[in-house]
Design a protein around this nucleic acid. Structure first.
Lengths: 129, 129
DNA sequence: CTTGCCCCTCACATTGATGTCAGGTTTTAG
DNA sequence: CTAAAACCTGACATCAATGTGAGGGGCAAG
């Protein structure tokens, strides 16, 4: 398939797909005229890339880890990277959980009907009052 | 206390504290010579700011929510913001959990003793071989 | 052939918190 | 008094993924 179709099927912009290739996360065959062509499994690959990006991994890290996910072959470096990223994710989840708990407290206060609420009138009236 | 002490006690750079003030997240009294002075509770405030930054809230959002955390007063806008950020955090935690699970699978493969390992020899030997 | 759509590369813009440097003033310790 | 340390403002740098636009081919249908 060509890049437009891959973009649509994987829900990623064409720009991003070219970027992934530049970062060596995704390979393509080029037609004689230079157009990119992808195999079916590219869709899945892009999904993996997205998954890892969404968790805050850098393209460099993803690039290092991808061979491992494909061939199962790992080096000391990829192993260390794996563990480090997992730890980072754990820390980030803890950060998120803490912030979420704090926001919950604030929500409780904000939606407490016994507390005063700022007026929702038009701003002019409020400031003029 | 002055900015250096606050930085040290809150574990944040002086640069960041000035930035927080610029973003109206943190206030200071100025001495006649223009130096910033902070009350004790500023330490706690900085902690809150950090907590929310760590969860990916923008300074603009934090600025909108801070009055709510101090006075308990909320507007429709801050309420919507609270719920939106909480949802965003939930989604992000789900993303992290998914990536973590995927990394776990990869870890299992990478550390599987029955699978072949890339050699850890010096790179020259490997590539020369 | 022409029109339209998809593709190509190159390159600059964006966002946001923070680093860093420059040049200057204040405070503090000796 | 003087030197060091801390502070001030202002401005430019950073990182990373993505947006966007220019200028130019490729290919299929009419």
């Amino acid at each position: 398939m060509r890049i437009g179709e891959l973009a649509e099927r994987s829900g990623v912009s064409v720009r991003s797909l070219r970027y992934y290739e530049e970062q060596e996360l995704l390979q393509s065959e080029r037609s004689s005229s230079g157009q990119r062509h992808y195999a079916e499994h590219a869709v899945e690959r892009v999904g993996l890339i997205q998954l890892l990006f969404a968790a805050g991994l850098s393209s460099k890290t993803i690039q290092a880890l991808i061979p491992c996910t494909i061939t199962g072959v790992s080096t000391d470096e990829t192993k260390a990277l794996l563990l480090a990223e997992r730890d980072r994710i754990d820390r980030q989840m803890a950060d998120l959980a803490a912030a979420r708990a704090r926001l919950d407290e604030i929500v409780d206060i904000a939606f407490d009907p016994t507390l005063p609420c700022a007026h929702q009138d038009s701003p002019e009236k409020v400031s003029a009052a």
